[in-house]
């Protein structure tokens, strides 16, 4: 196969950036998308040019490190597929592909297609956990969880933190990411004690990190490689509302003993 690639090249945060055109004639249909870029990069290096920077690690669609936009689609046009799992048989000889980074105010560009998504970590820091320490929990089977709830929780927990939802959203909202975590934990009895306060603090952090608000367009769920559903955003809103209504400052802790 032969492809024309238009790739966003940007040396760093201060550089304006531009698309650069590459003709790529060594593409096999069995290659993954990133292997296709590997081959391009090897050729660029041998020619003395700068290779294209892009992130990837597991290349099995589970770590969430890869991700850029192909012809307007985060992770490319194949549904439920990260760009590392997208294979070239999905494209045709002569195609023109435009590659650009996930764009959002909260995701500064590091170089070319590599971006900084640490804002997502900071949303988790605000409450995306059950506040328990290692050691001493009771026997796992003493907490019964219905299969349906467990399965739904797993659906929400399948999020890989890639940021495609943010790139797809016209408001650059990370609501699907945030709602996924709130739903994952809130659906389980273990997560119930902090369900409302978690929603409050995570949503607030989401907003201060510079992500936009959700207008329920649904582009995020369409782009999500793990199939997270808009319902999780509804669940987030419900927990957030409940948190707003019932919130009070914590009482001073402990006795005098």
């Amino acid at each position: 196969m032969r492809l024309t690639l238009e790739i966003w090249r940007q040396k760093g945060a201060d550089d304006a950036g531009r698309f650069v055109r590459y003709e790529h004639d060594e593409v096999s249909e069995h290659m993954s998308f990133l292997e296709m870029l590997d081959v391009l990069n090897q050729k660029l290096i041998e020619k003395g040019e700068e290779p294209v920077s892009f992130d990837s690690d597991c290349r099995e669609g589970i770590c969430g490190m890869c991700g850029f936009v192909v012809n307007g689609y985060p992770h490319g046009p194949q549904p439920l597929t990260t760009v590392c799992q997208l294979h070239m048989r999905f494209f045709h000889d002569g195609d023109v592909l435009r590659l650009e980074p996930f764009r959002a105010k909260a995701f500064p560009i590091i170089r070319d297609l590599a971006i900084d998504r640490s804002a997502l970590d900071r949303i988790i820091m605000a409450g995306g956990y059950n506040s328990i320490n290692a050691g001493g929990p009771r026997d796992a089977n003493s907490i019964l969880v219905g299969k349906k709830e467990a399965d739904l929780s797993m659906d929400a927990a399948a999020c890989i933190g890639c940021g495609a939802c943010v790139a797809a959203c016209p408001n650059a909202s990370a609501s699907l990411f945030t709602g996924g975590k709130i739903s994952h934990l809130g659906l389980l009895p273990q997560g119930e004690p902090e369900r409302k306060t978690r929603a409050l603090s995570m949503v607030e952090r989401h907003n201060t990190e510079g992500f936009g608000g959700c207008t329920v367009i649904g582009a995020c769920a369409e782009a999500c490689p793990k199939g997270l559903k808009l319902d999780f955003i509804a669940r987030m809103n419900k927990d957030y509302l409940a948190g707003t209504v019932t919130y009070r400052e914590g009482a001073a802790g402990g006795g005098s003993g």
């Binding site: 929990p137 796992a140 907490i143 299969k147 467990a150 994952h184 389980l188 997560g191």
Partner: peptide
């Protein structure tokens, strides 16, 4: 065995039987 207890308490969504056990 402690690991399974710890992970469950953290909210790891292990597969469940219909009765709710792991």
């Amino acid at each position: 065995n402690n690991i399974i207890d710890q992970a469950t308490a953290q909210g790891v969504p292990f597969a469940r039987e219909y009765g709710g056990t792991l």
